[in-house]
Design a protein around this nucleic acid. Structure first.
Lengths: 170, 170
DNA sequence: AGCGAATATTTAGCGTCCGAAGTATTCTTT
DNA sequence: AAAGAATACTTCGGACGCTAAATATTCGCT
């Protein structure tokens, strides 16, 4: 119950201001890094997720759709659409697995592989450069603190799932 | 030129590992906060961005579409669509400004305000709680370092725009 | 063998997101 | 004051991204 809309109840104003600022910054950094990836991909006539997919496939050779979606942190139905468009554009092929006929293997074409090789690794080239400009001490502090933060968030998510059935629903 | 694909060229491995970890953490935190917002919004029959918009409007009373889109880190064309659906659902109204007839003021309706009030603080309740669990010193360090980082990224974006015309194009 | 549960992928529908182009209005410059 | 630049917003087309439901196949159990 830390409502900023209610002026009576106030946590230490510094803390709340910091939370807002950190949150905004995380959103900003994420948005910008995504924008950069997209711009890079665009120079080769494809989209951000397509480049991401090709880079992943480049490393593995071929993956099932489920494996690919796991690596991309997206749902299968989303990846189906992305693969549809990549197949249409001759970047990957679909092959039904003979071992398990439910499974589809996604494999990059020659064209797909050459584009993957041409795009610089740097999704986060700019991001990385900005990080490099931090002092080593600040950078390792950032790593340490963000690590703690992510761990806390993970704990909370685990709790939330454990309590899922206590939700009365509306 | 910090390509990890080339094993010959390597920046200090610690630094690169840190960059990767920080990047991953930022993505993780962003993704999770968005998922939580969405789940919260759903309990009231609306979407994540709609709740975000209502929360922002709750604080300001009314905003122009451009102001709203700036607060939401999205493009005007995106916000136009979101406002369309919110207007359709009776959550906000559009009013043409009399001072400058190009401007449209977005104002929450009674229904919109009551929903905004009903949804717990927002997005980052979980995120905020996790941040609160950090020591005050870590939290202010995080604020400081992220601030520097965002500033560096902003500088790079400014440079990038200044150099836009040197791009030979493909 | 066969029936139901589990798994892998796709389809359908909705809501973001963006960039480019279009419209209306205001500002600037002459 | 009128042409041209700038600003505010909308429209359009394409690509994600998600959930729910459909389809196909395999697994588990009797």
């Amino acid at each position: 119950m830390v409502s900023r809309a209610d002026p009576d109840v106030q946590t230490p104003p510094d803390a709340q201001g910091e939370v807002d600022r950190i949150f905004e910054t995380v959103v900003y950094l994420y948005t910008e890094s995504r924008r950069v990836t997209k711009a890079l991909a665009r120079q080769h006539g494809l989209t951000g997720p397509q480049v991401t997919a090709l880079k992943i496939l480049e490393g593995f050779g071929a993956l099932s759709l489920s494996e690919l979606s796991a690596h991309m942190s997206a749902k299968n139905s989303t990846i189906t659409g992305i693969v549809d468009r990549m197949e249409r554009d001759g970047l990957v092929t679909r092959e039904r697995s003979t071992a398990d006929r439910r499974v589809v293997h996604i494999r990059p074409t020659e064209r797909g592989r050459s584009i993957a090789a041409a795009v610089p690794v740097t999704a986060m080239e700019m991001f990385g450069a900005a990080l490099s400009s931090l002092s080593p001490r600040d950078r390792s502090e950032l790593t340490r603190i963000l690590g703690i933060l992510a761990e806390r968030v993970r704990e909370r998510i685990a709790n939330e799932e454990a309590l899922a059935d206590t939700n009365p629903g509306d």
